[in-house]
Design a protein around this nucleic acid. Structure first.
Length: 173
DNA sequence: CGTGTTTGACCGGCGC
DNA sequence: GCGCCGGTCAAACACG
């Protein structure tokens, strides 16, 4: 209960020692380079503004949400997925819209600690990228939040993190 | 002993 | 109808 609206702490867990990466040391040293986009098709009547109301207490998000634009959708062809045609094509009716939020972060490590516990449930290699894509899920029961992490195809030093869903619980902090 | 991580296989959807 | 791609789950293993 102490984790009400306390300050945001990137990484301070004494047990979470990332001394593994000697070249990085602390993951909190990452820096946002570009902010990503959210699904444009869900703005129909579903307010995606909730992601900024109860799930995010990260000041970094606020600082970057003004930088919202597009991310590398140029040369890669922005082939995120043909899902847009799935709902925006014929089935204009959305049963359960999942809020998708993608970040492009400059980081040496993909394990960016956002204050939540994630359990990796799968790894897949996408054809359009020489790098594998990692699938994470929230370890907390009742939390439908999923996270997708993959490296930039043209900039391996950049990591693309896609959040899906809203956290129904407070962060570990 | 518990949890988390890992890898492979399986499945569903879409395209052709 | 089959092939391809992406996504998910499950069993086993490793580590704390």
């Amino acid at each position: 209960m102490s984790s009400d609206n306390n300050n945001f702490r990137p990484v301070d867990s004494p047990d979470s020692d990332f001394g593994n990466q000697s070249d990085f040391g602390n993951q909190s040293g990452f820096e946002f380079s570009e902010l990503l986009k959210f699904d444009e098709f869900l703005e129909e009547d579903d307010d995606l503004g909730l992601y900024a109301s109860g799930s995010v207490q990260n000041p970094v998000y606020q600082a970057n949400e003004a930088v919202i634009g597009d991310f590398g959708g140029s040369s890669t062809g922005s082939q995120l997925e043909g899902s847009s045609s799935r709902q925006g094509g014929s089935g204009r009716e959305k049963k359960e819209v999942k809020e998708r939020f993608a970040f492009k972060t400059k980081s040496e490590v993909e394990i960016l600690d956002d204050g939540f516990k994630w359990r990796k449930y799968g790894k897949k290699m996408v054809k359009n990228s020489p790098n594998p894509r990692n699938y994470y899920r929230c370890s907390v029961d009742g939390c439908p939040v999923k996270k997708r992490v993959e490296r930039d195809r043209e900039d391996p030093r950049y990591v693309i993190t896609t959040y899906e869903g809203i956290h129904t619980h407070q962060s570990s902090f």
